[in-house]
Design a protein around this nucleic acid. Structure first.
Lengths: 256, 256
DNA sequence: ACCTGAACACCGTTCAAGT
DNA sequence: ACCTGAACACCGTTCAAGT
């Protein structure tokens, strides 16, 4: 724009910041998938050289951790505050509000909020679930991990069960939330690259079809499930799983 | 050994087989971790060139899938058959046999078997849990994925709950099993490279210590948990989580 | 203090050439 | 039919050199 056309792709004038880098990384991850985050691609998008990024970030591991932290922070914030907004965006959820099923009434609702906050975040950022479990594995005491655990644990605390079951309950909820939300996000991605007009339903139809071809002797259960027509992992299914676990948490332990 | 010493590291005489490759891959994964599986390292271990592997395996993705399939097959087989042996190896589990808590008596025990079969397999192969969830995400109808789902689903079927809850129940169990077992395996790895004399307990002490440093306002739950002294994810903890979910599955849905 | 960009080591994958 | 190994494209990371 200023002088004639230049050869080099225009370097940036304002200085880089760590925040800009992390946001660009999240963007790249969302757009191009896990494999798309590259120091070269990222530096191009930021109009710098690869080396510049290393001034603000130690390496790829740290960059990934920062991106994960960023996305989770947003999710946890809107998860407790902007519930109405989040639920409004729900789309074809339908029965997503079948709450108030177990425990102290309002508490179950708040568990749904935390869960759905993460569900939505993972849907927006399909790379988030694998990344979070990796974070959980490699740095169990990292800030993100701890924040996630605390957010879920508080809801367990509110269920008013004996402290001895806190850890088990929180673990069960956390692993389910991460796993089921991750599965849902992955299904969406697979549906998307099945074609622009195909939705999650079309993709799940594919899976059901494959299941119906299984041998009746080897796979009686899976076949029966396919026959019953699975409309699986959308929000209602997800919430049903949370409720199931909450029911298990609040169930009196059987008299021995 | 035969003529004098040769320069090139001795090529193999017998022909390669896909099975050999997969087994060597599992071995390399176990020994060197996820990052250690390399076509060059693998081909060296097999006394060939990198290109040779491509004759039997399409690429790294397929190789990883095959390794995962192999490990899961072994786990699921010994999970139903060699229960006694598996449980015997339990080590310091202590109360791992507190079974028979919910549902039809024997059924809970069989769920424990399947769960612990996977738990042990993931402990032996720490790369297995991430790999399985990846497989679940990218190829939900793949053989491994389906076999895993069927194995867990059958136990759900045996619980004799309405078919409408089959999917939710199986999902909850599967995600918990994969998540909790993966967490346990990761803890073991972290403990291992904390030093040769450090065990899981020592490592978890580290985590608890970090948790105690958290701010009381921001992290009341996590702190309370740390104070109560966590002896977490060993087999008993793992089984407790399964029982919690089973309790949720068999709990009568609350009268609406 | 912050950025540049060539260079290094290493990766998955391909493929002409061998047997 | 099966294997060899050099070559290609691409990656994360480093670092002397610039401003």
């Amino acid at each position: 724009m200023t002088p004639p056309t230049r050869k080099k792709p225009e370097r940036r004038t304002s200085p880089l910041s760590r925040e800009q880098i992390v946001e660009a990384a999240v963007d790249l991850l969302d757009t191009a998938g896990e494999g798309g985050l590259t120091f070269r691609a990222l530096s191009e998008r930021l109009a710098t050289g690869p080396g510049a990024i290393y001034w603000h970030v130690a390496g790829k591991t740290e960059l990934l951790a920062a991106a994960t932290d960023h996305a989770v922070t947003v999710a946890l914030a809107t998860g407790s505050a902007g519930t109405a907004e989040t639920a409004g965006t729900a789309g074809s959820a339908g029965m997503a509000g079948m709450a108030e099923t177990a425990g102290t009434a309002g508490t179950a609702g708040r568990i749904h909020d935390v869960g759905l906050g993460l569900f939505d975040a993972i849907e927006r950022h399909p790379w988030l679930a694998p990344q979070l479990t990796a974070q959980l594995s490699h740095h169990p005491a990292s800030p993100v991990t701890t924040r996630l655990f605390e957010a879920i644990g508080r809801q367990v605390y509110a269920l008013d069960v004996p402290p001895s079951s806190w850890f088990t309950a929180t673990s069960a909820l956390m692993h389910y939330i991460l796993g089921a939300a991750g599965q849902n996000a992955a299904n969406l991605v697979r549906a998307r690259d099945l074609g622009p007009e195909a939705d999650r339903g079309a993709y799940l139809g594919t899976v059901a079809e494959a299941w119906k071809q299984l041998s009746p002797e080897g796979y009686p259960f899976t076949r029966a499930l396919a026959d019953q027509g699975l409309a699986h992992d959308d929000r209602a299914q997800f919430v049903a799983g949370i409720d199931l676990i909450v029911a298990g948490i609040t169930a009196r332990p059987p008299a021995s």
